[in-house]
């Protein structure tokens, strides 16, 4: 845990920006939305989710002690399980438990 004041400021910024985005259409865009904004809203979610997956895996290293094998296995397992069953909660739960077993017991 980092110092509480900075934590509180971070939460305030995240909450403020989130609310701003939610309120913005009601404050600004009711007279029509710029095409660029529409376009970005269409394509960004896909790109950002890709970015977030990589962001989650930012600390792995192929030359490290486990050679990123647990991460590769767990990501693959989660993705395959989800493609198969399409059950969000099951995929997250099983993927996480699988990863925990890998890092605690196997590697």
């Amino acid at each position: 845990m980092i110092e509480p004041v900075h934590s509180l400021l971070l939460i305030a910024v995240i909450a403020g920006v989130t609310a701003l985005i939610r309120f913005l259409p009601f404050l600004v865009f009711h007279k029509g939305t710029p095409k660029t904004v529409l376009y970005l809203g269409e394509v960004l979610p896909y790109a950002i989710m890709g970015m977030l997956v990589v962001y989650c895996l930012k600390d792995i290293s192929i030359t490290g002690s486990t050679h990123a094998i647990p991460e590769a296995l767990a990501v693959t397992a989660t993705a395959l399980l989800h493609k198969w069953k399409h059950n969000t909660l099951l995929s997250i739960l099983a993927g996480t438990v699988f990863y925990m077993v890998l890092v605690q017991l196997v590697f």
Binding site: P45, Y46, M49, G50, L52, V53, C56, L57, P70, E71, A74, V75, T78, A79, H82, K83, H86, T88, S91, I92, G95, T96, Y99, M100, L102, V103, Q104
Partner: peptide, 21 residues
Amino acid sequence: FNSAGIDFAMTALFVVIFVEQ
């Protein structure tokens, strides 16, 4: 409990959304 590796929940969440998308 030994929570090592529990951070993967976040990775799994985003992998799942990525697959859905």
